[in-house]
Simulated assay, not measured.
Amino acid sequence: MSHHQPTSPLSRSEIRKNIRKARRNLSDLEQELAAKKININFFQHKKLTKNTRIGLYLSNDGELDTSELIQSLIDKKHQIFLPVIHPFNGTTLLFQRYEKNSPMKLNRYAILEPKLNCSHICPLYELDYLLMPLVAFDNFGNRLGMGGGYYDKTLAHYYKENLQKPELIGLAHDCQQVEQLPVEAWDVPLRQIITPSKFYQW
């Protein structure tokens, strides 16, 4: 066997493992700075009208810390909705209104989510923006998630019907960018990704 063989590109699971590790290795200070910068970067590129409805997530596993952005949005009187794992089908997400005093619980992944209250659920298409987590993204806007497929399944109808709302934006650390991800047939690239230092649009 010749040792001049080109190295095979990394698989999705290898990329996922490497990037999650890189992300978890960020220091508290780096995370804090990233949270400040993403907050500034978001408002620089998105001019929100009053009372905008925004789907966001609470950070976990070294993900970009969204607490500062959530705080700013609440201060500016926008409405925040957090993902709740669907109680019946368990593979899609519902988006529930989140306020300072919302009762929270840990879901099956030990991630905090609002305690289900059907009267506070917002249908996906009534959100103006959906800011999504991701594990890795590439130079073409392809997104690699945690592997559970929650966002893919939640957004399947949205893509099929080519809905205009919500506007989808991926949030990530700069270290989560790779040159090219191996893409599956069902993957839909994101048109916008915001990192602490950049705003990508495709």
Rank of each mutant, 00 (worst) to 15 (best):
D28L: 12
A110V: 03
S13K: 15
H86S: 14
D28Q: 13
L94W: 09
I80L: 14
L64S: 01
N60Y: 15
P123C: 09
I111G: 07
L58D: 00
L58K: 06
F88Y: 11
S27L: 12
I121V: 15
E14A: 15
S72H: 04
P87A: 08
N89A: 04
I15F: 03
N117Y: 07
K36L: 13
M104F: 02
S27C: 09
E113D: 05
I74P: 00
Q96K: 03
L69C: 04
D75M: 02
R12C: 07
Q96I: 03
F95W: 11
L48S: 03
L82M: 02
R16L: 09
D65I: 10
A22K: 15
E113A: 02
L26C: 08
T66N: 03
L29I: 09
N41S: 11
Q79N: 10
I70A: 11
S102L: 04
L106K: 15
F43N: 12
A22F: 06
K37Q: 15
L10C: 10
L82T: 02
K100C: 02
N60T: 08
C122L: 12
I111E: 08
A34R: 05
R23L: 08
R23P: 07
S119C: 02
R53Y: 07
N25Q: 15
D128K: 00
E99P: 00
Y98Q: 10
A22W: 09
S27E: 05
H78Y: 04
L58I: 13
N101H: 10
Y57D: 08
Y98S: 08
K46T: 07
D61G: 00
L94I: 08
L73Q: 05
D75P: 00
L112S: 14
E113W: 01
R20C: 12
L64P: 01
D61H: 11
D61K: 12
F43R: 07
I85E: 03
P123Y: 06
I111V: 13
Q71G: 08
F43G: 11
N18Q: 15
F88W: 05
L93V: 04
L33Y: 01
L26H: 07
T91W: 01
K76P: 00
T92I: 12
E68M: 09
S102H: 06
F95H: 14
L116Q: 06
L94A: 02
E14M: 11
L116V: 11
L73S: 08
A110Q: 15
P87N: 06
T49W: 01
I80R: 06
E99N: 11
K47A: 05
R12D: 05
R24N: 12
K76T: 04
I111M: 10
K47Q: 13
R23Y: 02
R53H: 13
K36H: 12
Y129L: 15
P123K: 14
K77N: 13
L64C: 05
T52D: 01
H45D: 00
N89T: 07
K105Q: 14
E126L: 15
G62C: 06
N101L: 10
T92Y: 00
I54T: 04
Y109W: 14
E113C: 04
Y109G: 09
Q96G: 01
Y98K: 05
Q31V: 05
P103F: 05
I38K: 03
E32C: 12
K77I: 00
Q44R: 13
G62R: 11
P87W: 07
R23H: 05
